[in-house]
Nucleic acid binder design. Structure first.
Length: 865
RNA sequence: GGGCGCGUAGCUCAGUGGGAGAGCGCUUCCCUCACGAGGAAGAGGCCGCAGGUUCGAGUCCUGCCGCGCCCA
């Protein structure tokens, strides 16, 4: 028998092992398929709450679909996470061995990183298991697997041959800490308080000067022009003249270019093509010299003259001092501007001109744009479509080379003899042009997102034409966060169409961002993270999952407070104990096919409520409204099944004739557990296995189908009417501070209650006797009034007439308000004309009810007065 | 500068065109034989502000105020 308390630890591992052993998560390859690939977590450490949410939501859909009878494949895996992992390993190395990566060399460093990777792959895997994710571990993939690496090489070489990958000198974002370039998306812009420096540049052979404004004065060492807007009247005469660069003495042509913003600073722009994206473009159009003044550490290089060797900020300070001393500095203003930071280490990035590899994205994006416009790929919530489209329509070429060691090495070889460049899937033996064997591979690796972009098909075996690829591509759903729509979602779509000729997935569900209870992003630096594994340890995986489901309302961030887990653990405990109660009453259980004649009002009520819950939960899961599904089953199970149904049938269970009610209990419990299973897999399996109607596993049991035959509208109304009577009696009792245990006598005016209803009233209201009367007994309080019955609680000496009057008058006032509202509506001709007939009809009925109740109440009040 | 989202009970949030809801917290009562991690009853809301559309607006539209995010 079950213990009195739900203990998650004692059930979770056991059932996960059972599911694995039975192979429930491996698709059978028959029937309609449903496939989904996991967003591979980075192998940098523990998973965080965002992962927990992501994995939970996927597992809910996956388990639901599996129970619906789909042939479900959920592919798990991990991401090598180039820059993030390399940073983590570097830190680890420095801490444990006191060594930098440059000291141990590429080969040794990669060895260490592989050790790290293998360890953390296992860590991640165990964490995903702890969450209960029903992924198919026999198909686990890693982005640096041989198979996936082959896919990467093939994609690179194909795109290269199509001319969609090229190498070129462009302005790129350089992280001086990670010592690599970053794509535009890997740069995070943050508003910062900075300074705006106004500097005087003298005009050659004159006493004139032009004042420029800059936030980064150190870059002046690389200035090769001054630019103004062509229509700027202030500077019309200056265009064509020469300015002299202070401190350096270089001659700078003064040019006109539309890209200059006349409203910024003085309207005159110092042009530094090597260190600013706009300046770079201006430089290209005007054939300006490009002077790179920084090295990889963001220190000034030999082109910086006497400032060479200084760090960029030190150089800034020195240059400003020198400018001031020599009279070139006009003024310094406070200035708020947005500064680019590395998304992995938060260091301020420097724009630099470098020779890097790029993917030409314009053409690739076209098909992906059409797909979203046509609804071939749908976003949930819908509004993310626009975010995606804005980016795709304005897409820029993707810088894919990284000066890292950890990742897919760029499959390009350079012939040392003739200079020929070769892209090749396999290591070439000789130069295809001159035959030389003197070949050298490109030192760089690819952006980590390059391999992720192939994930939906590379994990299924591509470029081999595997059975999996044929059967499970395209996938049906992708669940991910909005922060990687550009990094990942958009690129998977582009690559999917380019290499598979088909979309990678049909639906994209963008999940919530998990914040702390104050609405701040969870971060290591703030220390405000709530660790999902700690929560599993403290409350259990099922409560964690259910909490996240309850909070997963589309289009809104989740503000997480640990108290939620406590609340929903109580729900799990409630389920546990309700099941325990049912099991305690099943010694003589015998399964029967319930006929309508076996069913009482309360049975029909609970079946009808259950059926409606089945519909709500099913519909909500279909539309990814996880919170609605969770709320529906929570309310049904706790408030209707536990608080009313079970309480109402307790006497029947004590009687000799309890076969039918046992069957109802088991049936409702069975279906409820199934509805709960996607959200709370462990708990439901544990309990379901104990039911006399169980099977091999709830995991592969059949999802409840909505069936109108189990809807009983009139019984629902009848039972709800009874609930009102019971509440009325309880209310009276509470008003006079009568203990709940004390039995009361009730007088009923109007029609006779059925034996069944009278029984519930006695049982649930703790009523000892019901007598039928034609007049209200003296010294009684009114518990319930409608057009069929009035229910009085006999109080005898306990009655406080003034208190009773106060209570009834309050009730009357409420009714009066309703009455006025209904009357106002119905007296409005336009309402009667325009509103749907059913609404008008309902309003009339309700008005009549209210009027009737008021009349009766008024009469009672009159008598009391 | 462009775009997006959010302002509903003390707190955290559901609710998208027809009678204001939940959890937690609060008050009162109950050791009722599944559960005190429970049960019963209750208090608590100009649904940010101002207009508009509509027979009817928490829900749709516009503006404003406040908060947050993305992009440039």
């Amino acid at each position: 028998m079950l213990s009195t308390r739900y203990d998650p630890k004692s059930i979770e591992k056991k059932w996960y092992d059972y599911w694995l052993e039975k192979g429930f998560f491996t698709p059978k390859g028959k029937g309609e398929k449903f496939s989904i690939v996991i967003p591979p977590p980075n192998i940098t450490g523990r998973i965080h709450m965002g992962h927990a949410l992501n994995i939970t939501l996927q597992d809910i859909v996956v388990r639901y679909k599996r129970m619906k009878g789909y042939d479900v494949l959920w592919v798990p895996g991990e991401d090598h996470a180039g820059i993030a992992t390399q940073n983590a390993v570097e830190k680890f190395l420095l801490k444990t061995e006191g060594k930098k990566r440059s000291e141990i060399g590429r080969e040794k460093f990669l060895e260490k990183t592989w050790e790290w990777a293998n360890e953390y792959k296992e860590v991640i895997k165990r964490q995903i298991m702890a969450l209960g994710a029903s992924v198919d571990w026999t198909r686990e993939r890693f982005t640096l697997d041989e198979g996936l690496s082959r896919a990467v090489r093939k994609v690179f070489v194909d795109l290269y041959k199509k001319g969609l990958i090229y190498k070129g000198k462009y302005i790129v974002n350089w992280c001086p800490r990670c010592k690599t370039v970053l794509s535009d998306e890997e740069v995070e812009h943050k508003e910062e308080e900075g300074k705006l420096y106004y500097v005087r540049y003298p005009i050659k052979d004159s006493d004139e000067y032009v004042i420029i404004a800059t936030t980064r004065p150190e870059t002046m060492l690389g200035d090769t022009a001054v630019a103004v807007h062509p229509k700027d009247e202030r500077y019309k005469d200056l265009v064509g003249k020469i300015a002299i660069l202070p401190l350096v003495g270089r001659e700078l042509p003064i040019i006109a270019d539309r890209r200059v913003d006349p409203k910024f600073g003085t309207g005159a722009l110092k042009v530094t093509p090597a260190h600013d994206p706009t300046d770079f473009l201006i430089g290209q159009d005007h054939n300006l010299d490009v002077i790179d003044i920084m090295d990889d550490d963001a220190k000034i290089n030999e082109n910086g003259g006497k400032y060479a060797g200084l760090d960029r900020y030190e150089a800034r300070k020195r240059i400003v001092e020198d400018l001031e001393r020599e009279g070139y500095l006009v003024r310094i203003e406070d200035y708020k501007h947005s500064v680019g930071h590395c998304y992995r280490c938060d260091t301020v990035v420097e724009p630099r001109i470098m020779d890097q590899w790029f993917v030409k994205t314009k053409l690739l994006a076209e098909r992906g744009i059409k797909a979203a416009e046509d609804g071939e790929i749908q976003f949930f919530p819908k509004r993310w479509t626009k975010v995606y489209l804005n980016w795709m329509n304005d897409i820029r070429d993707w810088c894919i080379s990284r000066q890292l060691w950890w990742g897919h090495r760029i499959p390009v070889w350079y012939c040392e003899d003739c200079g020929h460049v070769m892209a090749s899937e396999e290591v070439p033996e000789r130069c295809e042009k001159c035959g030389s064997t003197n070949l050298k591979q490109d030192e760089d690796v690819l952006d980590t997102w390059f391999s992720s972009a192939l994930w939906p098909f590379s994990t299924l075996g591509w470029p081999n034409e595997t059975e999996d690829l044929k059967r499970y591509y395209p996938t049906d759903l992708l669940v991910t966060g909005f922060d990687i729509i550009f990094f990942w979602v958009a690129r998977m779509i582009m690559m999917g169409y380019e290499f598979m000729g088909e979309k990678p997935f049909s639906h994209v569900y963008i999940h919530q961002l998990v914040r702390d209870k104050y609405g701040r992003k969870m971060s290591k630096s703030l220390g405000n993270g709530i660790d999902p594994l700690d929560m599993i340890d403290k409350y259990g995986a099922d409560p964690l999952r259910f909490t996240l489901s309850m909070l997963a309302a589309q289009g809104r961030d989740i503000k997480l407070d640990e108290r939620y887990f406590e609340s929903y653990k109580r729900f799990a405990n409630k389920i546990w104990n309700a099941t325990r109660f049912v099991l305690l009453n099943l010694e003589d259980f015998e399964k029967i096919d319930l006929e309508e004649t076996d069913l009482k009002i309360v049975d029909k009520w609970i079946f009808s409520r259950l059926e409606k819950t089945v519909k709500t939960v099913t519909d909500s899961l279909e539309s990814y409204d996880f919170n609605i599904a969770a709320h529906a089953i929570y309310d049904f199970f706790w408030k209707e099944f536990c608080d009313w149904y079970i309480e109402a049938v307790k006497p029947r269970l004590q009687s000799g004739d309890r076969r039918a009610v046992q069957n109802v209990l088991v049936s409702v419990l069975d279906q409820s557990l199934k509805l709960l299973h996607p959200m709370m897999p462990f708990l439901t399996e544990e309990l379901w296995q104990k039911l006399p109607t169980s099977g091999e596993s709830i995991t592969i049991s059949k999802w409840p189908e909505y069936d109108e035959r189990w809807i009983f509208e009139s019984e629902e109304l009848e039972f709800e009417r009874l609930m009102q009577m019971v509440r009325g009696v309880r209310n009276v009792r509470a008003e006079v501070n009568m203990p709940q245990t004390k039995k009361v006598s009730v007088a009923v005016k109007g029609e006779r209650l059925s034996n069944e209803v009278e029984g519930y009233l006695k049982n649930l209201g703790n009523v000892q006797s019901v007598e039928y009367v034609s007049e209200r007994p003296k010294a009684s309080a009114t518990a319930f009034v409608d057009d069929r019955n009035e229910v009085y609680v006999e109080l005898g000496g306990m009655i406080d007439i003034s208190k009773e009057l106060e209570r009834l008058k309050k009730k009357l006032a409420k009714l009066q308000k309703d009455r006025e509202m209904f009357e106002k509506k119905l007296s409005n001709e336009k309402f009667v004309e325009n509103a749907p007939e059913s609404v008008v009809e309902e309003t009339k009925v309700r008005l009549n009810d209210v009027k009737d109740q008021m009349e009766r109440l008024e009469k009672i009040i009159e008598e009391l007065e």
